[in-house]
Nucleic acid binder design. Sequence first.
DNA 1: CATAGAGTTCACGCAATTGTGAAACTAGTG
DNA 2: CACTAGTTTCACAATTGCGTGAACTCTATG
Lengths: 170, 170
Amino acid sequence: MAGPNTAWPEEQREEVLRFIERFASQMADAGWQRMPARVVAALMATDSGALTAAELAEMLRVSPAAVSGAVRHLTRLHMAVREREPGSRRDVFYVRDDLWQDVIAGRDRLLDNFEESLTMGVAAVGHDTPAGRRLAESAEFFSFLQKEMVEVLDRWREHREALREGHSGS
Amino acid sequence: MAGPNTAWPEEQREEVLRFIERFASQMADAGWQRMPARVVAALMATDSGALTAAELAEMLRVSPAAVSGAVRHLTRLHMAVREREPGSRRDVFYVRDDLWQDVIAGRDRLLDNFEESLTMGVAAVGHDTPAGRRLAESAEFFSFLQKEMVEVLDRWREHREALREGHSGS
DNA sequence: CATAGAGTTCACGCAATTGTGAAACTAGTG
DNA sequence: CACTAGTTTCACAATTGCGTGAACTCTATG
């Protein structure tokens, strides 16, 4: 019944809550909905990386209904995973370890849509007009960006592996 | 008095408007406010790259007040430029040619804030805890991403130059 | 210095979002 | 098979955001 962070001293608990709110606000600035952002932040800041709906509700001081909505949203976007341990009645929610990597990759798919629309725009204004050239260059930019991001993420995975080995070796 | 696109046949005009709305909607999905997005799309799809407030209002079928608000927002973010030709009473608004490059670079600054908050989070939960390691890795990810993006944008500028020379040469 | 064109500001109202409480649903447990 | 813990769903209330109309400001022109 006690939340997973109950053992923490009061002061530290508050500090963690401050981090959660602050980080969630920044996610909101970046276009996220408030509650899903808070849930993700809470999960990230929990040792096990997993919490039940009730624990989330208590931690974030919101109703179970709000948690339910946020979690549904997150699982739809594959940003959180629901799991129920057999012989238990409560669901547990995880964040995937490479969450942010996936988010960035997902943003990339958005860029793809941009490129598609821009190409439609080029056809609409005419490809041999100043506007057409401007739109075409923008489309090219997003295309370029997308290809580059794939490689950046590949390099990240390498970099991360190196980091992890470094840590276990020290 | 006639808008800059009045000469276009009705059908093409409609097609351009469809592009504007579609592209603006995608920008909205990416976290933009609706009206600023529509203004940017309209400017991009105009040959001169510039329109007056009145022209924007007519093109987007909104009140001058709405245009004023959107444009103020855009100029605050340095995403549009206001200019008044001497001896004229009307302001003209431009989009910068490397608009999207700047937008992406700006997003990068957001990542910087993320990294900062995450580092605070590490301190809050303790750097030698599972949560601390998770937060630290996320911070490292954003840091990595930011450095990589600088290089990606450099490469884009090179790539763009090559493209432009190719076009003028053909 | 009066007039009129161009844009801005502000108070209002409509619409969309978001969180809540209460009831309903689901699945373990005795 | 009733009971109960845990979660979801739904209607509603509160908040926020966004565009409009009307009044206001600023500046070029006669």
